[in-house]
Amino acid sequence: MQQHQMLNKPDGTEQPAVKLEDVKKVIGGKPIIKGLSFDIYPGEVFGFLGPNGAGKTTTIRMIVGLMRITEGNIYIHGKSVKSHFKDAIRHVGAIVENPEMYKFLTGYQNLIHYSRMVKDISRERINDIVELVGLKDRINDKVKTYSLGMRQRLGLAQALLHSPSVLILDEPTNGLDPAGIREIRHYIRRLAEEEGLAVIVSSHLLSEMELMCDRIGIIQNGKLVGVQNVHDFVQGDSQRPIRFSVDDGDQAAQIIRETLDFEVINHDNDIVEIQLDTEQIPIVVEILVEKGIKLYGIISAAKTLEDKFLEVTGGRDIV
């Protein structure tokens, strides 16, 4: 497997694994994708978030060459999908929508089938992949006997068979139970972090994306309306409102104002809300305890990722 530099934040010098350049798609005279541009770097999990019908699948179909790009271009490791399809697609493993396999074949026969379409995949490689996705016991059963979760695993196996450096998964958690979702998330993180894959995951559920992505691009009506760095956000040490539940909020507010130079945003008889960064929280706690205020709880009233997305999307519902 190709080793990539581990990079979560593109520094501008590395070649993107996937590059979309003002990509447009018109179907039947109707613009579906209206000029998408973004780069995805090795080692990064890029979330492609948007409501149903936003154009996620259409974009993915263009990346993997199932649909023609009406305008613009898509490059995979610098190779255009339009003009150098074989060289570009060689690096890509994908599941587009559901992982549909040949049901009358066994899981193993399905993998043999896809292995014949690329160069030099050994039986050992197939066995390793089967082991990796945890299908060893059932791989010689016909796919029609598989549960959705097992089909998803087999889908992942066919996508990873040829050791791609770009993995594209369209709504990979659709129809999976929470344990299955956690497992997929775990795989994806591991592939990006340990093997340096560039991963594109689409979803219409923000809660899922938050947990597995490094960056999230929001698509609405065929347009990218914002790209958020999840990492920055979660670890962000900027000031945010912290809410303290206390026995006497008004008194607490007075104490803070008198003794510390922090901004009290809000208070009433049982809460006090103060603009703080993480390091300042213990200082406040200490003072309040010293002055005999009973402290019942501390909540970071920070804007959630969801708030931020709502902001980006102009308050329209995205999930």
Partner: peptide, 14 residues
């Protein structure tokens, strides 16, 4: 019909 075309045509094969 099966949708397998999507996995069939994303290989380095014309």
């Amino acid at each position: 019909n099966w949708g397998t075309i999507k996995l069939l045509l994303i290989r380095p094969v014309s």
